[in-house]
């Protein structure tokens, strides 16, 4: 049997949302890896260099998407700093 506030199984809405945000942050690199692996599925011998600028635009597009998602998530999340901050000497 465990006790204490850490072992809560069910949370109110705000706490629940925070946990799902953390899940989203954890999933973000997975999404990144999947999206960045997609070019490997592109057909090999299409002859022309038609993929050159297309690949460039795709990779940078994914990059921007990841940055925007990460910025959005980190804004929504409340990060509780740890107890012993190394603040400026006052």
């Amino acid at each position: 049997m465990t006790i204490g506030p850490k072992s809560k199984i069910f949370l109110e809405q705000a706490g629940y949302r925070q946990r799902r945000l953390r899940d989203a942050v954890r999933m973000l690199p997975v999404l990144g890896i999947v999206l960045l692996s997609i070019p490997l599925l592109w057909p090999q011998d299409s002859g022309e260099m038609s993929y050159s600028s297309g690949a460039l635009v795709y990779v940078f597009g994914v990059w921007v998407l990841l940055i925007v998602l990460s910025a959005f998530l980190s804004r929504m999340m409340h990060v509780d700093g740890d107890p012993q901050q190394k603040g400026p000497p006052s």
């Binding site: 954890r26 990144g32 990841l66 990460s70």
Partner: peptide, 12 residues
């Protein structure tokens, strides 16, 4: 891109 993935997955 590698460090980007590492940074956006900072929670890990």
């Amino acid at each position: 891109l590698g460090p980007t993935l590492m940074m956006i997955g900072w929670w890990w």
